[in-house]
Design a protein around this nucleic acid. Structure first.
Lengths: 165, 165
DNA sequence: CTTGAAATTGAAGCAGG
DNA sequence: CCTGCTTCAATTTCAAG
């Protein structure tokens, strides 16, 4: 089956918009337009189009997990017993809905999932694994790695040139 | 010695604000105020306070990495040769600035880092590992896991009750 | 800590190039 | 696909409870 691209590419202007918004998602449309030398209406039009095309999917609130009572983060590797779609999907759906789960990676290879979780303390971490992960009979084994720190990378976009005003 | 907390806790109102904003970071202050039954100025005041206290750290733009030309994601486990602070910190700083890196986890145990990266194709992935990871002499070995899919979890907050209007 | 009303600023809609 | 103009909506500020 041929992969159908709804739009071949982003043009240069789109890239600049995405770059600037990625660097500061809270930029007002007005400020963005000015930096790009566009009319505000044009800028708003392009941004809306980027959202409609799904290039910009939305925004996420970055929270201080420690301040919210979950200072302990961990990466939990989950290996399954069986790998049929039914089991995998049910577990997947269950995990993403479990409180404390920040993100779930479904990966290729012998290990099936990596869970990024945030919990209150060591006891909560133990309970998380026992009550929400290994409780699923399809889970063969888990391996928990304490996270010292997590940093965001630069992502896939080149840094936009700094504003001149 | 008594542990000094900079602020004891979030009150109930703070929690509701954070919950609603986490569910939809693009809520206008006006809509947020209305849902909470607050005056707009009060609501804006509380939100600003949450940001100043660092509870709300900011927002992140969610992008379609595939649409940006990086459809392939991977989780790369990095194990170091030596673990002194100097080496670890230099590598850490280098990794987060490498194009294609979405996030870096610094973890406890024998494996030191997990890199979440997004690249254009298999060749770019190989080049990434060779040119940006194993090029550092302190890196002993890496293990690359292809990511089938990544989902966001519910996080640490209970789902706010749906709007009634 | 909260409020309403005033003043400022930003967003959206639209007809035309 | 881009623009300026108009109209409308949201945010900020502030003196006061």
């Amino acid at each position: 089956m041929k992969k159908r691209e709804q739009r071949p590419l982003l043009d240069e202007l789109d890239r600049r918009i995405v770059g600037l918004l990625a660097a500061d998602p809270e930029l007002t449309n007005k400020a963005l337009a000015r930096r790009l030398g566009l009319a505000e209406s044009t800028c708003a039009y392009r941004v809306r189009a980027l959202r409609e095309r799904g290039v910009v999917e939305g925004t996420t609130l970055r929270l201080d997990l420690a301040a919210l009572g979950h200072p302990l983060q961990a990466l939990i590797k989950v290996r399954l017993e069986r790998h049929n779609a039914e089991h995998v999907n049910r577990l997947y759906a269950s995990l993403v809905k479990t409180p404390g789960v920040i993100q779930v990676f479904h990966v290729a290879g012998a290990d099936d999932f990596y869970l990024h979780v945030a919990v209150a303390d060591a006891e909560a971490l133990r309970d998380f694994v026992l009550l929400h992960v290994t409780v699923h009979r399809v889970v063969r084994q888990t391996e928990t790695h304490l996270i010292f720190e997590r940093r965001e990378g630069v992502g896939v976009l080149p840094a936009p040139d700094p504003a001149t005003d």
